[in-house]
């Protein structure tokens, strides 16, 4: 009798402690590696093992940040870059989204445009730079064109894939229950394609920043790429590294925004549901 009564207690005791430690450490674990690297880097720089001409010490990057931020130049540059990024995303993304939907739902549209688009997709968009400069010069139009083009393909492909992979049984159910046209799209096709569209969006955000970095180093009067390019001419390695850090932060920010949007709109999806407490 005592054996039966004692068993659950013994089994239950060590668990909560272990779980608590795991969750505490789990929160810090992703930070462990970057903190170690930066600490080692700073120590090596302070000891003179790394020449500041090649690689600035982390603290120098912080000073450079402070310098740029307090003069207001940093805000101007970040704003200029963000503006280009967003307009490129809006233009390329909405064309890709529209074509993805059209080709997913209409066989005619698919037959007409998909082969052409798939051919264009294989050209790296940055290989178009010489042509783009000839067409648009080196102004804003060229940057917008390159970013929009880069963003277009992931969104197009994933929207198309999402629409084509909506469960045909659900579409059949919708038709039997009297849905057609816009209602069928709004209630069945679009929500069914949404997870895939988000994959495309997050993919294209990565390409968006990549294209922008290159496009901004072409020629610009503001922007993070411009800041980095100018710093290179004056051998200001700390500012160059600062630009890289800002790109990384902006990229992460965009991804976090997309992720938040995703989890808000996909609450129904088992992946985004909080586990039920039994």
């Amino acid at each position: 009798m005592t054996l039966v009564a004692d068993l659950p207690k013994q089994a239950a005791l060590p668990r909560p402690n272990f779980e608590r430690w795991r969750s505490r450490l789990g929160g810090l674990l992703p930070l462990l590696l970057p903190v170690t690297v930066i600490a080692t880097w700073q120590t090596a720089s302070s000891l003179g093992l790394i020449g500041s001409r090649l690689m600035p010490a982390p603290l120098d990057v912080v000073y450079a940040f402070w310098d740029k931020a307090s003069s207001g130049q940093l805000a101007i540059d970040v704003l200029a870059s963000a503006q280009r990024a967003i307009s490129g995303l809006l233009v390329g993304g909405s064309i890709g989204f529209a074509l993805g939907l059209a080709n997913g739902m209409s066989k005619f549209s698919y037959a007409l445009t998909d082969t052409t688009l798939q051919m264009l997709r294989t050209i790296p968009n940055l290989a178009l730079i010489p042509l783009v400069i000839l067409w648009f010069g080196i102004g804003e139009e060229a940057k917008l064109f390159l970013t929009a083009l880069g963003v277009f393909f992931p969104i197009y492909l994933n929207t198309l894939h999402g629409v084509r992979n909506v469960d045909p049984q659900l579409i059949e159910m919708g038709r039997v229950y009297g849905m057609s046209g816009w209602t069928l799209f709004r209630k069945v096709i679009f929500p069914g394609a949404l997870p895939s569209i988000f994959v495309g969006l997050r993919f294209s955000l990565g390409i968006m920043w990549l294209t922008l970095i290159v496009a901004e180093s072409m020629a610009a009067s503001a922007g993070i790429g411009h800041m980095a390019n100018q710093a290179r001419e004056f051998m200001l390695t700390d500012v160059v590294v600062l630009a890289l850090v800002i790109y990384a932060l902006l990229g992460k920010l965009a991804d976090v925004l997309a992720k938040t949007l995703e989890s808000l709109t996909l609450q129904w999806h088992p992946t985004f549901q909080k586990p039920v407490k039994a």
Partner: peptide
Amino acid sequence: RIVFQEPRLLPWD
């Protein structure tokens, strides 16, 4: 009206 072998519910509704 029809009831299918699978429930065919819209998971997002």
